[in-house]
Amino acid sequence: MENTKKENVLKRFASAVGGNNLVLIGAIIVVFILFTAINPNYLTWTNFVNLLVAASLVGIVAVGHTYLIIAGQNDLSPGSLCAFCGVAVALFLQWGLPIPVAILLTLGCGVLCGLFNAWMVNCIKLEAFIATLVTQTMVRGFAQLICDGRPVAISNQSFIKIGTTRFLSIPVSVWITIIAFIVFGFILARTRFGRSIYAIGGSAEAARLAGLNPRRIVTVSFIIIGVLTALGGVVFAARMNAGQPSANVNLEFDAITAVILGGVSFAGGVGSMFGTVLGVLLIQAFGTGLIMVNVPSFWQSVAKGALLLAALTFDYIRKERREKELIAASKRNA
């Protein structure tokens, strides 16, 4: 009797949080315990804050990827764009532009990049994977071009403060990502635009015939990830005191891994922002842990690849399970 009651409570809790999210929370706890056991310094406040700071960049890009992948698209350009925007904001400041103007111009670069990606996908009908590979390469080139391949130092002290200021003992960069998660999570769950993202990810043609405009929704999603990445690039430059043209390689890789781990399906139409938050925390806890237990960097790369493979495998298993449940439901209804 007592046991069944407990089971019911557990079941209700599980369905409220979502089975996949529970698995993720469990995985994060396991990762923390594992790495702390090897290196006790892993579980300290300082390290935790550092972990959040590192996660904030992946996180803000992952917000954009959550939208795009649910809509059935993808974006491989954020790593390059982030580096480009870091260099761009550094240059704008060097020219003596006021901070708000420099930041707005940089975000404008993010908008342009998003528009370009959307143009390739909507008008030349390229697969997003290939289209954004083009952007990835080109934007990386531009990042090197505008600074001749050398990092651009930032001396504007008020700008650097963006990277160092804390609020409630948590750095501003982390707060920015938290706000992005909340705002865009709300938009995704509760608004017309969010619903449209799910609808075109489920079936773009059905959504179009039902009166939606898939092209516009895709365009706006690409602009959103562009602006968020640009913002991430600005904050990253402030933390580094410089714009670095060769930085942030594989940023999109981490973000996509986090999003898929978080339960967004590569097939589109499925996922949530909360899942992405957990995915980001898991991948960063894992990545930081590997560094702190002195895993050689080449092996870190192998491990990250393995993590993405695991995420994709989970995605596949979830999809299979959804289909089986559907068939079972049909059997019940028949």
Binding site: Y198, A199, G202, S203, E205, A206, G268, G269
Partner: peptide
């Protein structure tokens, strides 16, 4: 393919 939006609910 053109009618239902398969990932949404009946209400959706």
């Amino acid at each position: 393919l053109q009618g239902i939006i398969s990932n949404l609910s009946v209400a959706g």
